[in-house]
């Protein structure tokens, strides 16, 4: 399926239709080259309505919604810096020196929506939402829910809430869906450690055969 406009084109359409919406195109370096649109929290629902209702796009079907956990990342790049360095004759000279700069990107949780159009028979358009950070208890893991726009996102947003701990504001029925209500962990997060109930003391004589 194709025929869907390029991400840059959709971005321009969104920005004219929804004033103030901040959209970023996330590049995809893989052979598929499927680019995606990162939406801001305030205008996400309005943008989603536009994507669904625009007569040219008509993305009336949300086929998939999933969560992604991005840990804190540290990228290092080499930068050439001019510095005063003591020369061989003892006098300071200006020289170009390589310096490694490290930038820390704080981790975040991400919700990814794959949108198709049944009417226009095109797609997918990929939409992303990112939380401020991945700490619990604060507003850091809140995202606007797109369930009011696409009903099919309801259970999948519940799943992302259950397994990643993304809190979807505006979701009609945000409860855990796979794990039980009393469960407190978010098992699909990368820093999840399952409870230790694995290693067993067998009580068997040590024959070296059966562990």
């Amino acid at each position: 399926m194709s025929g869907v406009p390029a991400a840059e084109e959709i971005k321009a359409q969104i920005e004219t239709a929804v004033p103030g919406a901040r959209v970023r195109v996330i590049a995809n370096g893989s052979p598929s080259g499927q680019q995606s649109l990162l939406l801001d929290h305030e205008h996400a629902v309005a943008v989603a309505r536009f994507l669904r209702d625009d007569p040219a796009l008509r993305l009336d079907f949300c086929s998939l919604m999933t969560g992604v956990d991005w840990l804190d990342a540290e990228t290092s790049e080499k930068v050439k810096v001019k510095k005063m360095v003591a020369g061989p004759d003892g006098i300071d000279q200006e020289q170009e020196v390589d310096e490694v700069r490290k930038t820390k990107t704080p981790g975040y949780l991400e919700a990814v929506y794959h949108l198709f159009s049944m009417e226009k028979k095109h797609g997918p358009v990929i939409v992303r939402l990112r939380t401020a950070n991945r700490t619990d208890g604060t507003d850091g893991t809140h995202l606007p829910s797109l369930t009011p726009v696409w009903r099919s996102a309801e259970f999948q947003e519940r799943e992302a809430f259950d397994l990643y701990g993304i809190v979807f504001d505006g979701h009609p029925d945000l409860r855990r869906i796979l794990m039980w209500d009393g469960f407190v962990d978010f098992p699909m997060r990368k820093d999840y450690v399952p409870p230790a109930d694995d290693i067993l003391e067998t009580g068997l004589p040590e024959t070296g055969v059966n562990p």
Binding site: D181, G182, V184, A196, D197, E201, T202, G203, P205
Partner: peptide, 28 residues
């Protein structure tokens, strides 16, 4: 029972026995 992190208890020591009849223990 459903606990906060998993099932409680993790095993029934009366039932979960090694071949020689000793209970199997979880090493924490």
């Amino acid at each position: 029972q459903f606990g906060e992190h998993g099932l409680e208890p993790t095993q029934n020591d009366e039932v979960f026995l090694a071949e020689n009849g000793n209970p199997l223990k979880v090493l924490q």
